[in-house]
Design a binder for these strands. Structure first.
Length: 444
RNA sequence: GGCCCUAUCGUCUAACGGUUAGGACAUCGGCUUUUCAAGCCGGUAAUCCGGGUUCGAUUCCCGGUGGGGUCACCA
C-alpha cells in the first residue's frame, strides 16, 4: 500500500523583534492547514543573524504562539544546525555550484571570503497556490551570496536546506517572500531537493492600506500589545483568520476547532488586507459576552485600582454593568481614568438644574422636581433591595408623577452624570443607605 | 527606478459570464421601563479608468493608474 505523503509545514520567524501580528497570522494558517490534514507543524527559529537575533525575542515568539494556542509539533533553531548547513555548503562548492569569493568587506576595509552561489541565470517558473503560475528571470540576481563563510550560512541557504531536511511539503508564508522564491528554487535545484508547494499569503496592511510598520504604527503591530490590552487570544485568532481568508458562509465567530475544520487554501485572498481595529474590538466584545468568566475578569481589573474604602461588594455588583460597556479589558481602566466610574466610589456633585428633565427649566419645574425627589424617598424599598423590587416600587410612583420628572433626577442625583446605568441599577449597586443619602443630598 | 503581486461599499469580504451586486464591522435613523450600554428593526454606501472578447461582463484578455512586495555579507 502506498503511504500518502505526510503534510509538513513550518513557521519560520526570525527573533529580531517583538512578534509581529502578521507572523501570528502566518502561524495560524500553517497551524490550521497542518491540523486539518493530520500533518506536522514545525516551529523553526531562524536565528542565523547573530547580531540581530535576541533570546528575548525568541521567548516572545514562543510565548505569543502559546498564548494564541498554536502548539507546534517540533521546534528547531538554525543556530544549532550549522554543521548541517556546512555539509551542504561544502557539497555545493565541491560540485562547482558555489564558490568562495575573496572581496572587500561591505562595511569597513579589509578582505573577506564569502560563499557565492553560481547562478545559472535562467528563468524560474513556479506555481503558487494563491496566485497561480509566476515567472522570474533570475539572471539579475547574479551570483548571490549564500553564506558569510562556510560556517555562517545566510537566510536563503539555511531555509532551503532546512525545508529539504525537514521534508517540508508546503511553504505557507507571507507575500514578502514571493520575490525570494526563485533564488531559493535555484539553490533547491542545486541541492537536488524536491520543490515544495508554495502558498504566499497576502500581507496585513495598516488601516490606511499603507505598510504596517513598527516605525509608523508602534506597538500595535505586536502580538504582545493585544495580550497586554486584555484581548482574548480566541478573538485575536478569529480576527486574524478573517483577514485574508473567508469561510464562504456568513459565519463570523469561529473557535480554533471550527477553523481547523473549515479552513481551505482555496478561500485565501490575493490582495493585502487592512488591519481593522473596530472589527477586532467587536469580536472581542462578542467573546466577552459569551464567556461567563468575563465578569470576574472585570472585577479583578477593578481591584487593581486600589480603591480604599470601597467594599468588594460594590465592585462585585458593579462589574456586570461595566462588562456591558466595554469591548476589551483595558477599557475598564479607560473608564476609570476618564472618571466615568467615579460616582460609584465617591459622592457626585449635583447641581439643581442638572436634575431637570429635558424641556423643563423654570422655577416651578425646579420646585416640583425637588418635591418629587423628596417624595421619592418614601418609595425606596425598606426590604429586598434588588433591582427588580426597586424598579417595581419606583415605577409605580414614576407613572403617577411623570417618568421623566422622577427617573431622570433620581438617576442624576445618584450619579451626577449625563450618562450612567439606569436609576434602579444605580440604587442597587450603591446600596440602600447610600442611595437615600444621595437622594437627600440632591433634594436639599 | 527594474522585477513580481494585486484591485467589489470607509474596512473585511460573497459572486466562479446573466443577481434589485449579498453578508459582517463601522456609520446614520427608529424602537425598547425616557440618559448611557446592550438588544431589536431599518437606511446610506462598492465593482479604479480605458480598450477589447461576448447576445451579455464585477467575472475573461490587453493597457493605464493606484496599492503592496522585493532588489543586503537581514530575515
Amino acid at each position: 500500500m502506498m503511504a500518502e505523503k505526510k503534510i509538513v509545514v513550518r513557521m519560520a520567524p526570525s527573533p529580531t523583534g517583538p512578534m509581529h501580528i502578521g507572523t501570528a497570522r502566518t502561524a495560524l494558517f500553517n497551524f490550521l492547514f497542518a491540523r486539518q490534514n493530520n500533518g506536522k507543524f514545525i516551529l523553526r527559529i531562524e536565528d542565523t543573524d547573530k547580531e540581530r537575533s535576541k533570546k528575548e525575542y525568541e521567548r516572545g515568539i514562543i510565548d505569543g504562539l502559546k498564548w494564541l494556542g498554536l502548539e507546534w509539533d517540533e521546534m528547531y533553531k538554525q543556530s544549532e544546525r550549522t554543521e548541517i548547513y556546512k555539509k551542504y555548503l561544502e557539497q555545493l562548492i565541491s560540485e562547482g555550484k558555489a564558490y568562495i569569493s575573496k572581496e572587500t568587506a561591505k562595511e569597513g576595509k579589509g578582505e573577506v571570503e564569502v560563499v557565492r552561489f553560481k547562478n545559472p541565470g535562467k528563468q524560474i517558473t513556479f506555481f503558487d497556490v494563491v496566485r497561480g503560475e509566476i515567472t522570474f528571470d533570475t539572471a539579475e540576481l547574479k551570483d548571490f551570496v549564500i553564506a558569510k563563510n562556510v560556517g555562517e550560512p545566510l537566510y536563503h541557504f539555511a531555509v532551503v536546506v532546512d525545508d529539504m531536511e525537514m521534508n517540508v511539503t508546503h511553504i505557507v508564508r507571507g507575500e514578502d517572500h514571493l520575490s525570494n522564491t526563485p533564488r531559493q528554487i535555484l539553490i533547491q535545484e542545486a541541492l537536488r531537493a524536491d520543490r515544495p508547494i508554495y502558498v504566499h499569503l497576502p500581507l496585513i496592511l495598516a488601516p490606511d492600506k499603507s505598510k504596517l510598520s513598527k516605525r509608523k504604527h508602534g506597538e500595535t503591530v505586536s502580538v504582545e500589545h493585544y495580550k497586554n490590552e486584555g484581548f482574548f487570544p480566541e478573538a485575536v485568532i478569529n480576527f486574524l483568520a478573517l483577514l485574508g481568508w473567508n469561510p464562504g458562509t456568513v459565519q463570523e465567530i469561529f473557535t480554533l476547532k471550527e477553523l481547523v475544520e473549515q479552513f481551505s487554501l482555496e478561500k485565501l485572498q490575493k490582495s493585502g488586507a487592512a488591519f481593522n481595529l473596530e472589527k477586532l474590538l467587536w469580536l472581542n466584545k462578542e467573546y466577552l459576552k459569551r464567556d461567563k468568566g468575563s465578569v470576574f475578569l472585570v472585577e479583578a481589573e477593578l481591584k487593581k485600582f486600589g480603591l480604599d474604602g470601597v467594599s468588594d461588594e460594590i465592585l462585585t455588583k458593579l462589574s456586570p454593568f461595566i462588562l456591558e460597556r466595554i469591548s476589551v479589558l483595558s477599557d475598564v481602566r479607560k473608564l476609570f481614568d476618564n472618571g466615568e466610574l467615579s460616582y460609584f466610589f465617591s459622592k457626585p456633585e449635583v447641581g439643581a438644574t442638572s436634575l431637570l428633565w429635558k424641556g423643563e427649566g423654570d422655577v416651578v419645574d425646579t420646585f416640583r422636581t425637588l418635591e418629587a425627589l423628596t417624595a421619592l424617598l418614601d418609595e425606596i424599598p425598606k426590604e429586598d433591595f434588588s433591582v427588580e423590587n426597586i424598579k417595581s416600587k419606583i415605577m409605580l410612583f414614576a407613572e403617577k408623577e411623570g417618568r421623566g420628572r422622577v427617573l431622570w433626577p433620581m438617576r442624576f442625583a445618584l450619579s451626577g452624570r449625563e450618562k450612567s446605568p439606569d436609576p434602579f441599577t444605580l440604587a442597587y449597586i450603591l446600596g440602600k443607605s447610600e442611595t437615600i443619602a444621595r437622594l437627600k443630598n440632591a433634594s436639599n
